[in-house]
Every structure is written in C-alpha cells, then in structure tokens.
Design a protein around this nucleic acid. Structure first.
Lengths: 338, 338
DNA sequence: CTGAAAGCGCTTACAG
DNA sequence: CTGAAAGCGCTTACAG
C-alpha cells in the first residue's frame, strides 16, 4: 500500500497523486477546489489525501506562487490594556480574512523594532501593521515603503506624509472632556499623565483649545507629566494634590493613568465623582467597573483595531488606491467620576 | 550593471552570485557566516548583496532545509490583562531565541481554536504554545501529538497525561489566601468569581482545604460563581452583599474579578481593607495601583510566560526528554485590601 | 576554498 | 478534463 511507503516522511501531493492515480497537477487543482477537475476525480483525490493524512505545505505553495498569507503586527505596549484590545480587533479581522498574524512586542525599543520588522520582511509578510515605538524616526516610513510591502500605521502617526493610518481624534476627544469639566464649573482643570510623542501633543492641544474657547489662559502649572501608566497616573495625581493649587478636576492622558489617579485619590480618602472630577481617555473595558466607574472618552479600541486591519486589507487589494485613513470620532462617556 | 538587470524583480542569491562573481552556493554559505569561505570572498559577496538590496528569502530556505522558525501561540482571552502579560513573557523569550510568533486569539471558541491550530500546522510551525479554550476536549492533545510538533500547554491543563505544561499551583495559592483571611479572624470567608474549568476546580479545592484545616465546614452558600471578568466580579460581589449572610471577607478567582468586586464595594460606600477583606489571584500589573491597591496571590504572569516558552524551546532541542513542567509557586502579597 | 547539481513541495502555463 | 515540464529561492552533499 502507498501508505506504507511513506514510512515517517510526511505526505506530499506526489504521494496523494500516486494513491489516487492522477498527476500531481490534478491534486494541486483539487486542493484549491478548481472547477477544472470533475467531481468523481476530485472525490478520489480527497479520499487519498485523507487516507495519507496529507497536510498542505503552505510554505512551498507560497514560494512557488510568490504569495503570502501572513501579516506582521508590531505593538509596543501590550501591558497597556488599550493596546491589547486594539490587537484583538486587528487579529479578529485578519483571521476572518484568511490571514495569519505574526506578532511582535517591542516595548518602545526602536532597535528591537527594526529587528522584528526586518525579520518579518524575511518571512515575506503580505503587509505590516505598525504602532511605532515612541522615538521612531520618520525615516522608517520611507524604508518600509521602499520595501514595497503594504503598511498601515495605527494609533501613533509618523507625522505628515502619504501613508495609511488608523487612529482617533485625540485633540477633539480631550477638547470634549476639558469642556465638560469647565462647563461643570471647575475653574482649574488639570491635565494628568503622558509626556511625549505625537499623541501627547495632540491631546494637550485639545486641552488648550477648550481653555481658549472659554477665555482661560493656559498654564504649564496645571500640566502634570508622567508615564502613561498606572504608576505614572498615581504619581501625577499625588503631585497635583500636593501642588497647593486646589485643583479639583482633571482630564487624563489615558484610562490607565486615570486608574493610577483613582488609586491616589482613594489613598487620601477622596472619592472621584464627588471630591474630584476625573475623565480618562480610550474607554478600555476596565473602566466600566473600576472603583468608581470611570468617565472617559470613548474611541472603541477593538473597533479601532478592526478598522486598521480593514485598511491594510484594502491596501493589499488595491495597491494604488489613494491614502486610506480612519479616525475614530471620540465620544464623551459619562459614568461616575465626572 | 547587474543592478539594472533586476528591473523590479527582487534580488536572489543568483543575482548576488553574479554580481560577486561566485557561485550561488558560495553566497549561501556566506549568508550563514560559514567558516568555509575565506574573508576576502565573503566581503565581496556581502558588498554585492548590499548593493543589490538582497533580502534573504526564509521561506525558500526553510522549504529546502525543512526547518521553521515560527512558533504558534494560541491565547483565548487577551482582554484579560493576565493573559496579555503571559503573552508578553512568551513573546520575549521566543524572539530572544530567534523565533517569530504566530499569534491567534480564539475567545474561548473551540471551533476557531481547531481552525487556527490547523492553519498554524500548514504554516509548518516549529512548535505550539497552547492555552486551551474552556471546553476543549482532551482528545485535542492526542491530535496535536500525532502531528509530531512540539507542544506546551500553559495556564489551563488538559487533565492527566504526558505533555509539557506550565502553570501555577492554584490550589496552594487559594489555600494561602483563605488561610490568611481565616487567621485574621473572619468567620465567613466567601469565594468569589469563576465558574468552570480545571483552574476553577483547583482554586476551589484550595479554599476547601483551608477551611478543613481550621475545622470549618464548607458551604456552597459562600461560593458566588461568575464569569472570571470585571462584570462577573461586580455581580458576584453584589450577590454576596445582598445574600444577607454578613460576609466580610472573600478570596477571588482572579484579579480581574476582584476589580469588579472593588467596584461593587465602592458603590455601596464600602472600602476594601477596612470594611471588607479581599484577596485576588495572579498579581497582574494593575493590582499595584487599583483603588485601593489589591492584596493578591502573586504568580508572576510574565515570568510564567517566559518559563512556558523555555519549556517549548527545550522540547524542541530535546524531543525525547521526559515530561517538562513548570509550576509557579504562589506567594501571598499583602497590599491594602486584606 | 569554491562550484555544479539535485531537490524541498508546490503552481502554472501549455499541450493534448 | 488531465498530464508533463519548468521553476519559485534556497541548501546540502559531493567533487575537485
């Protein structure tokens, strides 16, 4: 029996062809459900493949056809739930479309980022989804583009230029949050957390714009920088509280910083919502059941991931389409902290 | 010039060979820094490769050599920070070892899980890292083993059997937490969150064991099942509070459920630590700055991920080594909620 | 120390 | 409707 002859070796289309008494071209055609092969033959081939435990060798197929079904996704801060949620959206969309995701986590290390990008290139990915590490040089854009592999940048942009991008309207989001706090009668609204990068600048711009519209001068003294993390938010809130400025309201760089702030507030016996008004940014899942539930700017993280992936898929289909962009419209979501 | 002749096409070792006036075998050898080729020749080849913008085609190399540098990692609940942290550990270890990770998220969908596993198999992965979806059949183990691809299961085991595994001592962890609460003088200690699967059973066993050691009878009435999520924890705590049982202490299935519980407590004006004693499980990053900071059972999630990856790497090196297991020793980490 | 040759497992025109 | 043949870009004995 043909089965015996394999002896350990994994079956190939040649084995299947022999077992089914057809040529390997026929097997190849059957595997992709080509209408060229008549039903009876196809059935025979499938039975043979089954019998031999044949597994398609995608590597060989792709080498020959010069195709690829892998997408390289690079994320920098998976410890932040926001990015985990975005990744879930990306993965879902990509897998639904028949792709497979090559994932890399670079923890803001530009050198590592270069390395994984290069590695993904060697793997011959069909496209890149990149959320650039904090100090990424704009030159990276040209480099990747010169490789001729579709790219969509997400969340953090790389400055002006002709590249596909999916993100949110940071400026408008913070504008909404700040305006809400100002309208609620707070004279001094602080800005808490975050410190560098394009996103920070945009968010601070939204804050400034809201102040300006109310005729309130911007003051650096109300801005408390910190890592966009829980610890960062915690420290920034402590700094804010001990600055002797009587600040009673703040908009946060992101939800995770807001959580840290909530912790600092609680430690001082203060309750967000009554003693201090706080608004986050992102609307990660955790915000719905934090203590207390956080008011935030909703940019639907998972949906953002799906949209970003959709852009890449469209770019792959239409390499010459003009610039593709998705900007999540932020929405003010009031819960209990403001 | 050779460069011109490529015209769009991407350079191969044949092009590099022509440019450097050597054979393609020599180029191949130079690319892997073989000592067989003398320095001068190697330099010439490298210069040529550089000049042509040559990119190694790993797919072709692996096809020929029947090797693979991709590891398939399947996660089920990336929205839970615990798994995100484990994934970070896995990814770090694997990338350090020169591998690339093919990641899939199956959101507890057994059908999807089968599909992605199959897809990864076609990609010819060098190994699998699997955290099985909740209702995974034990038969999956045999299936994957029959494929002859190294596998390490992590966090959720698949029952008794001869397979590599990395997890934590759930029973002992919950035992420590329960005992601590009991020793603190709490008569009624509740068990909050979680509801099915091997991990749940183990954790509940630890709870029972602690009670037994103190001569306290186990009562189903103190167990409040719920999804191992924030909402779940929130609802379970509400049920616990309104059960009219005067429960003042509880150990939680995991940190995320504990966060939900914290939220429910806060809503009722209760402060964990003084009004209610609460202990989580996992020690995810968020616990250090929750409101208030959560006492928990530390199993070092990222480290767990690294250990799990190490096991797979070792299995790849030594296919015939005997069963490899890592069990994180849980440690009681007291912060402010207990 | 380097080259010629065979082959990894597929796909894709091209015949018939 | 199916088969024979060439080739995707590498690697690896084998000569020399």
């Amino acid at each position: 029996m043909a089965t015996k002859s394999l002896s350990g070796r994994t079956a190939t289309i040649v084995d299947v062809a022999a077992e089914a008494n057809v040529s390997k071209s026929t097997v190849s055609l059957v595997l992709k459900d080509s209408p060229l092969i008549k039903g009876e033959t196809a059935d025979r081939v499938k039975a043979a493949a089954n019998k031999l435990g044949y597994v398609y060798n995608r590597k060989a197929g792709e080498l020959r056809g010069n195709s690829s079904n892998a997408i390289g996704v690079v994320i920098n801060d998976l410890m932040n739930p926001f990015f985990a949620e975005v990744l879930v959206g990306i993965e879902r969309k990509l897998v639904d479309a028949g792709y497979v995701v090559l994932m890399a986590h670079t923890r803001e290390d530009v050198g590592l980022q270069d390395k994984v990008l290069q590695s993904m290139r060697e793997q011959n990915v069909a496209g890149f989804m990149l959320c650039p590490a904090l100090n990424t040089s704009r030159a990276l854009l040209k480099t990747i583009q010169s490789w001729g592999i579709p790219l969509t940048v997400f969340v953090r942009d790389l400055g002006p230029g002709n590249y596909d991008f999916a993100g949110s309207d940071s400026e408008h989001g913070v504008f909404l949050a700040t305006t809400h706090l100002l309208n609620a009668g707070h004279q001094k609204v602080g800005f808490l957390g975050g410190q560098k990068g394009v996103v920070f600048t945009r968010r601070l711009d939204g804050y400034k714009k809201a102040l300006k519209e109310k005729g309130i001068p911007f003051s650096e003294d109300l801005v408390f920088n910190a890592n966009p993390s829980r610890v960062g938010g915690y420290e920034a809130m402590n700094a804010m509280l001990s600055a002797g400025q009587q600040i009673k309201a703040a908009v946060c760089y992101n939800d995770v910083a807001a959580f840290g702030a909530l912790s600092a507030l609680g430690e001082k016996g203060l309750r967000a919502g009554s003693d201090f008004a706080l608004i986050g940014f992102d609307n990660i899942l955790d915000t719905a059941h934090s203590n207390p539930p956080l008011s935030t700017i909703d940019i639907r993280p998972t949906d953002l991931g799906e949209q970003a992936a959709s852009i890449l898929l469209q770019r792959i289909r239409e390499p010459d389409a003009k610039r593709l962009v998705y900007t999540a419209t932020p929405t003010l979501l009031l819960r209990q902290t403001a």
